[in-house]
Design a binder for these strands. Structure first.
Lengths: 181, 181
DNA sequence: GTCCACATGTAACTGGTTACATGATTGG
DNA sequence: CCAATCATGTAACCAGTTACATGTGGAC
């Protein structure tokens, strides 16, 4: 039950149409909560019928016509409630780790190339985050309310740092590891 | 499409019944791929009908009777294929980071307590992983084929380390942060 | 007037979750 | 023999994914 709240957050930051939201979910918000345009349109419909958001005045008809939404007080209240509510972390699921465990049983044949590819992807993501940090959070600054956003960004940076290091380490092992079974 | 492969891996490590698998998915494998018993039974049925696994001889009828499975050659081949196949990392989804971003808009009221709780959970998980490391991978050892398993465990340890550090850091910020909006 | 990009949407499917049902075995 | 536990399963639901459909407006 997080997509509606991701959308409410995005709309509070700035009222948008479905497609604008989709684009923002491909960048900033999407870095830790991704969504496709189909999900977003579906959810916008639900949020509207529940009275959490409404289309901005200057209402247009349907298809092909841009339609922007803003958050209503009930929507903001719901988001605040959700943010504060206790939630258990949901169980991990990581395909790469699973594949490594499988490789311990059926052999590492062919796995190395994909590890290299993942390493490259994580390096690129890390560079992107660091670029954002340079741009939006220069050393001295960090006004009170930017702190939380910087904190989130740092989580992204640290996670990507972890993956690049771990993958490098894994590839070293592979170098010495004569292909078993 | 990872659950069937998680099950094949588990069954190759040791032939098991559905409930035994469920228990193993609550521990070792479940540390990076969780599954409930309903998922597992459903998937065992599919895997059997596809010819990847079979019930061990000494076949019993259905309900209430234990039924153990082993992997057939076709199953092993499929697992090897899947392990080597290139797969894109799937887009991140992290509720806690999302909540922090929401808090930047609607205020941090009530969030701190849950961050503390998460910190405690991650500390506990980290301790558990470190215990496993002490037990199963004492410094000198690490036979050739244990290396991959140790690598996976270290990913778990490093990830939990990241979370405990990041959460500690976040809580420090909260200390200084007079509740905004 | 036709093509392309923009914009909104529908439908079918897959995988995971929650709630519940039912039989077998064992300890008291 | 009864309750608890072990063990296997069904059904309904929900969220996310993939493929496709349809309308609008501007460039050529």
């Amino acid at each position: 039950m997080s997509l509606p709240h991701a959308i409410l957050t995005a709309l509070l930051e700035r009222p948008s149409s479905g497609l604008e939201l989709t684009r923002r979910f491909d960048r900033s918000i999407g870095y830790f909560w991704s969504a496709t345009h189909q999900q977003i349109y579906r959810e916008l419909g639900k949020l509207e019928s529940e009275g959490y958001i409404r289309t901005l005045p200057a209402e247009q008809p349907a298809r092909g016509q841009k339609k922007s939404y803003e958050v209503l007080p009930a929507g903001r209240a719901e988001l605040a409630r959700w943010t504060a509510a206790s939630q258990d972390p949901k169980p991990q699921r990581d395909v790469l780790l699973l594949r490594l465990r499988a490789a311990a049983v059926v052999g590492t044949e062919g796995l190395e190339a994909d590890l290299r590819r993942h390493l490259e992807l994580h390096r690129r993501q890390l560079a992107e985050y660091e670029e954002i940090q340079r741009r939006d959070f220069p050393p001295g600054k960090d006004a009170r309310e930017d702190r939380l956003r910087h904190l989130v960004l740092r989580a992204g940076i640290d996670l990507e740092t972890f993956w690049t290091q771990w993958l490098s380490h894994a590839l070293e092992e592979f170098g010495e590891l004569p292909d078993l079974p």
